[in-house]
Write a protein that binds this DNA or RNA. Structure first.
Lengths: 158, 158
DNA sequence: CCCAGGATTCAGTATTGCCTGAACGTACTG
DNA sequence: CAGTACGTTCAGGCAATACTGAATCCTGGG
């Protein structure tokens, strides 16, 4: 009943230079890769960043040149982390994704979470090292303090 | 002319529970892995965090159960990033490594660098999207601003 | 000038993780 | 109720990465 690409998918970004768009998408891809995610996840994110309209799985797959299976997996991963959001459109059974409205928050939240995890590690080690060398104790204290400071500063920013 | 393990390598940390130590080292390993480094790099870092004495390549290799080749490669990588420092000891030709004295700085510097890189990406995209959708422009502006704020805050902390 | 002890490099291998096509499940439509 | 359109899951293939042992290089000492 639907035409293949309904109005919702009108392209609204960078239409003057599609090459600039794919370049950006690819850059975000390698960035995500360096952060421990898959390149595809980064590409999806980058692509959606530049799109006003929400995009369906097929559109993303076609656009990025990957299988629908990958897109399905990665979008749900990003959704779980609060980076993406599902949408629907009346008279359309497909699932659409867009970047979450309050985007900066989950992005920074993600970083914060990592720092917290490391912070926790340090604190545990500090507890166990009570009988150890003073230098090591001091070192861990210093790190814990620095991290506490930064985590608080970041938390306040959100 | 040296005995195999000279005084410098006396173990000073967590000697009450060596199992706690290896657990910590392993945790740091997986943490580094999630951050896009190799697990070995993380293990080396974790191990040196808990040692007052600087450790030689052989000691690290034996301790972590990896080849000396890996240790050599990864230590130099960590040194390049300012996380580790080389040391020597009189009458000993071996290379010793320890955690850098002002450790929190390079650690946070690394994070800062990553955020800056992403920030740069966003700014470039913003520039190219000038003729694109207002929503996308606004979104990118928002992200750029948030990142600018956090980067500045972090920079100030160092 | 040669030797020994150490670090580094490198080619080969093992492992990991990503991606895919196909099978499956599910919900809508006629 | 059958058919279809979609999303999800999964086994297998493939490419990238990390690790290793051996070869090479470098430096200090005899």
């Amino acid at each position: 009943m639907n035409v293949n690409f309904p109005i919702h998918s009108v392209e609204c970004s960078l239409h003057s230079s599609s090459t600039g768009r794919v370049e950006f998408v690819e850059q975000v891809g390698v960035f995500f890769e360096a952060e421990g995610f898959s390149r595809t996840a980064g590409r999806i994110f980058g692509r959606l960043l530049l799109s006003e309209a929400s995009l369906s799985l097929d559109q993303l797959a076609a656009d990025l040149g990957v299988s629908k299976a990958s897109v399905s997996t990665e979008t749900r991963m990003l959704e779980r982390r609060g980076v993406l959001e599902r949408t629907g459109h009346a008279g359309d059974r497909r699932v659409y994704y867009r970047v979450a409205p309050g985007l900066p928050v989950p992005t920074l939240e993600l970083r914060l979470e990592r720092m917290r995890r490391f912070s926790r590690l340090i604190s545990e080690a500090r507890r166990e090292v009570r009988r150890g060398s003073p230098l090591v104790r001091q070192r861990l204290d210093l790190m814990a303090e620095a991290h506490r400071y930064v985590v608080e500063a970041l938390g306040a920013a959100l």
